[in-house]
Each structure stands twice: as structure tokens, then as C-alpha cells.
């Protein structure tokens, strides 16, 4: 297990380094400058370049940047919020994305889970078909359509929930975006849980457990749901990453000042530090969550936990 964790950690670090390198190079190769204000003279622009260390050789720039990043310094914004530290900006905006993303993950996975269990246990009945119908809808409807529909109903028709983000009521204004964001997760989890449970209920170990003469609910809880829960973590993680990263579409639809919104503004303004900072942050987030999931999975699944060596 120790070896397993170490290996995962090493892979994570290498991946992160490579991602940063690639992004840095790509960013540099792109046309456009952060200081393309027509009122500035060449001399003024050159001075700004010098000030931010953008005039040295590219490897030195990268090296400096990497060094700063390791110490948690992503530099300051050049254009979007001039001279504000990128870290501060990221955390300000991420807080909102994280809240809505977590809420959507929890809502979607809990409802999806129960729907999946219902569909699997009642396989082939009207319940199964109903759950399948709902999840097909959830997977195929783009979430901005869901966003439109629910804001039309709850915000414009019934007027019970705000259709745009209000700083003064962070929770109430997060309800509609949470629902819109959760439908895909809900549908995916429903599909996964249903299919995984059906596979297990067709397995040899289910047959053996059933032959012991234990009660049906015990059979389902101990042998089916337990094993499904273990594997559902692996599908949940990538879904969760998508949600907490801040859905650009949903943030736009509900005017949420989240990380996705910031990312778009920074890209449009060629604000290198902010773009690179957010991308690096995303990479850390993705890799971090996958790492935690891998380790968690290793802890839960005895087949990995107990495999010494290798």
C-alpha cells in the first residue's frame, strides 16, 4: 500500500510538471500581448515587459514562474484586475464555484444513487423504465437547457427563486444553478449504479450469497450495494471535478462570478498570469482529486490494499 501511494504521488508530480511546461510554452506561442493598449508607446510597453520579467529568455521565464508557483506565488494580474495577486483572485472566485459544485455533486449523486438502486432492484418493471427515461433525459439535455427551463418556471413564472446570482443571498441564489448542474451527475450515477448492481446480481458470488438463505435486503445491502459503493467512487470523481471547476455555461446562465467566468475574462484579455494560474490550479485540483480517489479506492478495496510489493 505504501508503495502504491508513493507511486501515485510520483505520477501526480510528474504529470503536474509536464502540464505546466506544455501550457507555458503554448501560452508563449500564442499571438497577442497583455499590453495591447493603443495609447501606450513602445518604450512604455518595453518597460512593462521588463517590470514583469517578460523580456528574459523563455526558459528563464519558465524557471522563475515554476519557482514562484512552488512557493504559491502566481504573480499578479496584468489586465483583468490590475496588480491583484492571482491567488487572491482564484480563491475569491473559486469559493462560489466550489459551493455550487459540491452542492450539485451531493444532490446529483444521492438522488442518482437511489434511482439506480430502485431501477436495479425492480429491473424490467415500470420503475426501471421510468428511471431509464429520466436518466436518458438527464444525460441528453444540455445543462443550459435545464437552466433555462427551471429559471423560466421558478424565477419568472412562480418568482420563488432568483434567476441571477445575488451576493446578499448566496444560498438561495445557488439553488437553481445547483439543480441545473446536478442533472448530468444524477443521470450518470443512476446509469452506473443500475448497471453495476445488475452485473453483481448476475455474478457467482451473488449466487453463493443467495444460496446461504439470507434475507433479500441483507443480500442487497451486504453484497450488492457495498460493492457498488466501492466502485462508484471512481466515476464520481471525474464528475465532481467537472462540477467544482465551475461550469462556464451555468455560471454565464445565472450570472455567477465564479472561477469559470474569471477564466473566460482572463483568456479574452490575454492575462497570462491569471490564465496560467487558473490552469495550474485546475491541474492541481484534477490531479489532487484523482489521487485522493486512487488512495481511497486502495484503502477500501482489499484487492489493492493487501497487494504487497509490485
Amino acid at each position: 500500500m505504501k508503495k502504491y501511494v508513493l507511486k501515485r504521488l510520483l505520477i501526480a508530480v510528474v504529470t503536474l510538471f509536464l502540464i505546466t511546461l506544455i501550457l507555458f510554452v503554448m501560452e508563449k506561442a500564442m499571438p497577442g500581448s497583455p499590453f495591447n493598449d493603443e495609447k501606450m508607446s513602445h518604450a512604455q510597453v518595453a518597460a512593462l515587459y521588463r517590470k514583469y520579467g517578460l523580456d528574459g529568455p523563455i526558459w528563464l521565464q519558465f524557471f522563475n514562474y515554476l519557482k514562484n508557483m512552488i512557493t504559491g506565488d502566481f504573480g499578479v494580474s496584468y489586465t483583468v484586475q490590475v496588480n491583484t495577486p492571482v491567488t487572491t483572485m482564484i480563491f475569491q472566485h473559486f469559493k462560489i464555484s466550489l459551493q455550487i459544485g459540491l452542492q450539485a455533486t451531493i444532490l446529483g449523486s444521492i438522488i442518482g444513487f437511489f434511482m439506480g438502486v430502485l431501477a436495479a432492484v425492480k429491473k424490467g418493471t415500470i420503475w426501471d423504465n421510468l428511471m431509464t427515461g429520466i436518466s436518458v433525459l438527464g444525460i441528453s439535455l444540455p445543462n443550459f437547457v435545464v437552466a433555462l427551463i427551471i429559471s423560466l418556471i421558478f424565477s419568472y413564472k412562480l418568482m420563488v427563486l432568483p434567476g441571477t446570482y445575488q451576493q446578499t443571498q448566496p444560498f438561495v441564489s445557488s439553488i437553481l444553478p445547483t439543480i441545473a448542474l446536478s442533472t448530468f451527475t444524477m443521470a450518470s450515477i443512476e446509469r452506473y449504479v443500475r448497471n453495476d448492481m445488475i452485473t453483481i446480481m448476475d455474478s457467482d458470488y451473488y449466487r453463493l450469497a443467495d444460496s446461504k438463505g439470507i434475507k433479500k435486503y441483507q443480500l442487497i445491502m451486504h453484497h450488492v450495494i457495498r460493492n457498488t459503493l466501492i466502485s462508484v467512487i471512481t466515476v464520481l470523481a471525474p464528475l465532481m471535478i467537472d462540477l467544482i471547476a465551475g461550469s462556464m455555461v451555468i455560471e454565464k446562465a445565472f450570472a455567477i462570478p465564479g472561477l469559470g467566468t474569471l477564466y473566460i475574462s482572463a483568456i479574452q484579455a490575454n492575462d497570462y498570469n491569471v490564465v496560467l494560474g487558473i490552469t495550474f490550479f485546475y491541474a492541481v485540483l484534477f490531479i489532487g482529486i484523482m489521487l485522493v480517489v486512487d488512495i481511497l479506492y486502495g484503502l477500501i478495496d482489499p484487492r489493492i490494499r493487501l497487494d504487497e510489493g509490485e
Binding site: 457467482d204 458470488y205 449466487r207 446461504k212 439470507i214 460493492n227
Partner: peptide, 23 residues
């Protein structure tokens, strides 16, 4: 389930590699 299975009649299956719960 309550009177027969496992109590009066029990079964040994073909594939021991897959017939026990892995976790």
C-alpha cells in the same frame, strides 16, 4: 429462503475463483 436454502439444501458452485465476495 427462510426454511430451505442454506439450512436444508446447500450448494457448491463451479468456479471458486469468482464465487466468494471479493471485498
Amino acid at each position: 429462503q427462510s426454511q430451505i436454502k442454506g439450512k436444508e439444501i446447500a450448494m457448491v458452485f463451479q468456479d471458486p475463483m469468482t464465487s466468494l465476495d471479493p471485498t
